[in-house]
Amino acid sequence: MINLSGDIHSLSDFQRHTSEFIAQMKETGKPIVLTVNGKAELVVQDAVSYQKLLDMMEYLETLAAIKQGLADVNADRTSSLAEFQQKMQEKLSYFQTSCNC
């Protein structure tokens, strides 16, 4: 959900004062919500802040995957390397016979 209590401006205002808005975003690191006909339509942010957001998402996704892996180990929902290799070999064999490779 977009926090509409933040910095909100019309798209036309942003177009008229783009350089000032860019300077503001670089200084504060906060995005700007742009409206069209009074309705929030776009969120604009500087590249450094966007990259930080992407990095944080990747970090959180990694933590979630680790947490799921640990839960799988604790619940004994794992297989040995030998079982995994056997399943992959079966899938590879099926693929090779299916495509006549």
Rank of each mutant, 00 (worst) to 15 (best):
L60G: 12
M88C: 13
E90R: 03
E20T: 04
E61D: 12
K26F: 06
T97S: 13
R16N: 08
A75P: 00
E61C: 00
D13K: 00
M56E: 13
R16Y: 05
E90D: 12
K91S: 14
L42W: 09
V33R: 13
A47E: 00
E41I: 00
C101E: 15
N3R: 03
L63Y: 12
N37Q: 11
V44P: 02
A71N: 07
Y59V: 04
E90L: 06
K91E: 15
E83T: 13
S19L: 05
S10C: 02
E90W: 01
T18I: 05
D76S: 10
S19T: 12
T18Q: 06
I22R: 00
E61G: 04
M25E: 08
L42K: 14
S19N: 04
L34F: 07
E20P: 01
Y50C: 03
E90N: 09
V43R: 14
M57D: 15
C99A: 12
T97V: 08
Q24C: 05
K52T: 09
D55F: 03
Q89V: 04
L70S: 10
Q15T: 06
L34E: 10
N37A: 10
Q96N: 10
A82V: 12
P31F: 01
Q86N: 15
M57Q: 14
S19F: 00
G69M: 04
T18S: 03
G38W: 06
V44H: 07
F21H: 03
Q85I: 10
E83H: 14
T78G: 09
A71T: 14
T18C: 03
I8N: 12
Q45K: 04
V44M: 11
V36F: 01
L81K: 08
G29Q: 02
L92F: 14
M56V: 10
Y94M: 13
L11D: 08
C99H: 15
S93G: 11
E27V: 14
Q24Y: 06
N37P: 03
M88P: 02
V33I: 15
V43E: 08
D72V: 04
F84K: 10
R77D: 05
M1W: 02
T35D: 03
G6V: 08
A47F: 01
D76P: 02
Q85A: 12
K91N: 12
K30F: 01
S98N: 13
T28M: 00
L70N: 12
T35P: 07
L81E: 14
A82I: 15
D76C: 03
R16I: 02
K67H: 11
K39Q: 05
N100C: 11
L34V: 00
M88A: 15
L92K: 15
L54S: 08
T28W: 00
A75Q: 07
S98C: 12
A23T: 10
F84C: 13
E27K: 15
S98Y: 13
T78D: 07
A65F: 01
D76N: 09
